[in-house]
Write a protein that binds this DNA or RNA. Sequence first.
DNA 1: TCGTTCCGGGG
DNA 2: GTGTACGGAACGA
Length: 819
Amino acid sequence: MTLTTTQSEDEWLWGWDPTPGIVSVWAETDGVATVWRRSAASGELVRESDRFRPWLLYDRLDDLEHLGARLAPEGTPGAPNAPNAHVTYRELAGPGALRYLLSANEWRTLTSALLQGASRRLGRQLGHVRDLPEETILALAPEEQYLVATGRTYFRDLTFDHLRRLQFDLETTGLDPERDRIFMVSVRDPNGVSSVLEVTGEGDAAEADLIRRLVAAVQAHDPDVIENHNLHGFDLPFLDRRARKLGVALTLGRTSARGLAQRGARRGAPSGRDDGRRVRFVAPGRELIDTLDAVRRHDFSSRDLPSYGLKAVARHFGISGPERELIPGAEIYTVYRTDPARVRRYATADVDEVAALSRMLGGAAFALARMAPRRYERLADAGAATGVIDPLLVRAYLRAGMALPAHEAGDGTVHSGAALHLFATGVAHRVVKADVASLYPSLMRAYRIGPKRDHLGALIALVDRLVETRLAAKASARAAPPGSAERYAHEAMSSAMKIVVNSAYGYLAAGGELTRFADVHAANEVTRRGRETLDLMCRALAERGVTLLEADTDGVYFAVPEEWTEANERRVVAEVGALLPPLVQLEFDGRYAAMLSHEPKNYALVEYGGTLILRGVAFRSSRAEPYGESFLRRAIRHLLAGDVIGVRDAYLETLDALRLRTLSTHDVSSRVRLTKTPAQYLAVRESRRELSYEAMLASGRTTWSVGDRVRIYRTKGGSGGVVPDPGDEHASGAGEDARAYDVEHYSRVLRDTFAARLARAFTPADFAAVFAHPDQLSLFMPSIAAIRPILTRQSPGAFGATDPAAAPLASQGREPHLP
DNA sequence: TCGTTCCGGGG
DNA sequence: GTGTACGGAACGA
């Protein structure tokens, strides 16, 4: 690789202009960009005005011929008579369709000239750039035009802690801004000091005054960034609506604009007009960051969050204090009227947690903003493929003077997916999981698989540099003191790189409508190599004497012989890893005492420490009755410990508990959601009875709302009952439990639904014996002690040493995310 | 029971 | 002038 290549690849990734400290950019179509920069040394903020030439890419020049002498190639000497009406062009190299870079002093000059010519050529009046056929033009938002053209990016020489961040959180009387009001706002200023603003009375004037005080607080603290959890989904739309209704100017930005601007966004709030469009709000000069986006993005790779709610996430990350005030949403206003101090504590905890959460997860978007030519707030909520990779590629092509290809629909080729093999079902012991981290981008690098139309080779080059940067960042993070700002920064960089690297494949597979360089053939080559790699892994493992259990996309579960130590396990993973292509690294991902393999992606694992892990719908469902779940967990523990008598006992004890009604009604109930109104149900009741509603009626509940969730159970008569909510003191009969549930029915459910999850662990005869009716106990009792759980090969010989070429019978291809 | 569509959050 | 994937839950024949 030559020095020049390396240099330009650096520029593709990072831009080239060294201007430090940019914390916000706002550009207008008149070619004026306002740039706010913060000094890393002094913390001082400066506001600068810069000029840029609005530009776009177009596939032809003849639409501008009508300009005559007012159209000129870039750099033509001799200014024309009317410089403001002067459009310049540059022809780019290479075969790409978008080969004319057009620019003018003002956006309107450029687009009106273009639309005039295109209207004449196409024979219809075009009023807006969006009316042009989309494959003929590339037009970016003004800030992005500015950043791409200048090679500037946000945050050079700054760390996350240099940012001045303010958090605020609204407390309202309800969720509907048409009807409900704001009565409190908690604010955490950039120095970390929290305060609470409250209404000083009721009615419009008091609420309007509260909003004015919030705006004044924002202006006074002058933050670079405003943050909250679900900021774009709740607080800003609510605030905007209330401010409009009350006639208050919502001047949250740094320019004199009166209200908030809007931008289209997939995950925004519905726009005021009922045209189905969704928008997010923009406050020029500040970046509006929603920690919900950071949470989603984090969970995208970690998938370990119980929910995306602020409280749950804060608890998960150990952010919330032990005394965290919690109030159910619907009760906040009621509580406020009797105990306002409690709501103040609650609201303050919210902004404190948001600040900490943002500190913890916001670094990834911060790191992306140092690379990609987009605003920080756009990179925080953008999808990685269209939101990060596309802008990087556009900037790379323009920097290289190359024409960009137009969006191109696929040729109808079906996208083929990853491999999924189920080798064995039943019980296995000494289980190991090995997998390849970032398999797809590794294959793209190893085999140089990139989009056909990427003649610059920019995507693979970016993936190479991103992976190198990520590895360096990971190493730096490990070297930095735990908890230090430096470590946070390196970890944030690493996770930002990971987001982009892992979406490089998604970019190929996304389909031509979505990404400029989409290439289904290249995507299929990646998955084909992936299947090939997985097969190679499986075959090589089988040859080394392990028993394959399940393999999926980039990882495999297998069982090792009894006498093996962990060192043996690790050695075999390393040996097999050495057979894989360079850059494809097989990792030892975990070891387990035992596994119950039920169906593809449905299994139970028990760790050596005893922790039980259940995966897949067969083992975890919120609708399952608690007694069944509890039986299943107990039975699987015994099963995986080799204790079949224990499985049998768990079954018999559960049956007894049902028969003797020692199980509460709650234990046998299941949670349902009511989707019909009382009137709707009564209308169809005679033709078709439904347990949920019969249970409501039988419990004397004749009114309910659509969407209500209740716990219901079945009674002997075929009707049912509702289990009173423990928090509902008004419910009749709360506290006493008649336990009038249908024992026969729940005994059947225990066998047919719950015990059935263990069917793979036994021969049919043994299964019948283990789960025989208690009356037949004596018949089977002697044999049960002798029963051993079994493991059944699903594909005899496949990947075995005897027949390495055979394909597994139970394998199936998947087709992920077809466009 | 199944395939298919929708949702994830905020007071 | 936008655009993730995924697992689970709700929905509709």
